[in-house]
Simulated assay, not measured.
Amino acid sequence: MTPYPEEPWHLAGQMYLSLWLEPRSELPAVASGTQPVIAFGRGVVGAAWVVYEQDSVLHYNELLRAVLVRHGRRPCACITDIWVDNEASLSGGRALWGIPKEMARFDVERADVVEATASTGDRALAASRFSQSRRLPGQWPLTYKVAQRLDGRLTTSRASSKGALSFARATWTAPTHSPLHALGRRPPLLSLALRDFSLRFGG
């Protein structure tokens, strides 16, 4: 297994996030021991492109999908699908926290409009286009937990982040063969850009 940094990981960079309300029957499978948070027959699904750079312990690109779940009474995020382009990130994510990382190839163009694609082999996973609109003042802190299966048991990992937040308009497309094909069926309910964020994960 490729060597990886010990936890906690200190990361920094840019995130482009979209949220959907999906029917219960269309939610991806979550870790056993958790249950999706359901309201009026729908659950919350998020998908994000992340560029880890600056002072990050590792530099890499990431594409993920997660579901808002409940572990006991506490809401958590459960990552159901995730790809990276760094083998140390893949090994560490799996070994430390049970995050099911896979390898992919990324193309991320960042200007006034952010365009991102990811593929495995010769097959596309997803493509997105984000254009930012109104930026919110200040730095926005967020603390949450991620619930995954690790070595046959449910484990939770703490994440704390802070960054500049902007509303965005986003479009997502994914081919029918992609595990993420559901993301292209309807437009996101909300999209955000988290710029120059810092993140402490695990530990």
Rank of each mutant, 00 (worst) to 15 (best):
T2F: 10
T2A: 03
P5E: 06
E7C: 01
P8G: 03
P8N: 10
A12K: 08
G13L: 04
Q14H: 15
M15L: 09
M15I: 06
M15R: 12
Y16N: 06
Y16C: 00
S18V: 05
L19C: 08
W20L: 01
L21E: 09
E22L: 10
E22T: 09
P23Q: 13
P23S: 07
R24S: 12
R24L: 13
E26C: 07
L27G: 10
L27V: 07
L27I: 13
P28I: 05
P28D: 07
T34W: 00
I38L: 13
F40Q: 10
G41L: 03
G41R: 07
R42L: 04
V44I: 15
V45W: 02
V45A: 01
V45N: 01
V51L: 06
V51G: 00
E53Q: 14
E53I: 00
D55L: 01
L58K: 06
H59V: 01
H59M: 04
Y60H: 13
N61C: 08
E62D: 03
L63P: 09
L63Y: 12
L64Q: 14
A66R: 09
A66F: 14
L68N: 03
L68M: 08
R70D: 05
H71L: 07
R73K: 03
R73W: 11
R74E: 15
P75E: 06
C78T: 13
D81C: 04
I82V: 15
W83F: 14
W83E: 03
D85Y: 15
D85E: 14
D85Q: 12
N86Y: 10
S89H: 05
S89N: 12
S91I: 07
S91E: 13
S91D: 14
G93T: 05
R94E: 09
A95T: 13
W97H: 02
W97P: 01
W97Q: 03
G98E: 12
I99P: 05
P100I: 10
P100G: 04
K101F: 02
M103I: 10
A104T: 10
R105M: 06
V108Q: 07
E109D: 14
A111H: 11
T117H: 08
T120V: 14
G121V: 11
L125W: 15
A126E: 12
A127E: 15
A127P: 04
S128F: 00
F130I: 01
S133D: 11
S133E: 11
R134D: 08
L136T: 01
G138I: 04
G138A: 07
Q139I: 09
W140D: 06
Y144M: 07
K145R: 15
R149N: 13
D151G: 00
D151F: 04
D151A: 11
G152E: 12
L154S: 10
T156A: 05
S157E: 12
S157K: 05
R158D: 11
G163Q: 08
G163T: 06
L165Y: 14
A168T: 11
R169E: 11
W172T: 10
W172P: 08
H177A: 09
P179I: 12
H181P: 00
A182E: 12
L183Q: 05
G184V: 09
R185F: 05
P187W: 12
P188R: 03
L190T: 15
L190G: 15
S191L: 06
L194R: 11
L194I: 15
R195D: 14
R195H: 12
F197G: 05
F197K: 02
S198H: 10
S198D: 08
L199D: 09
L199E: 09
F201V: 03
F201S: 01
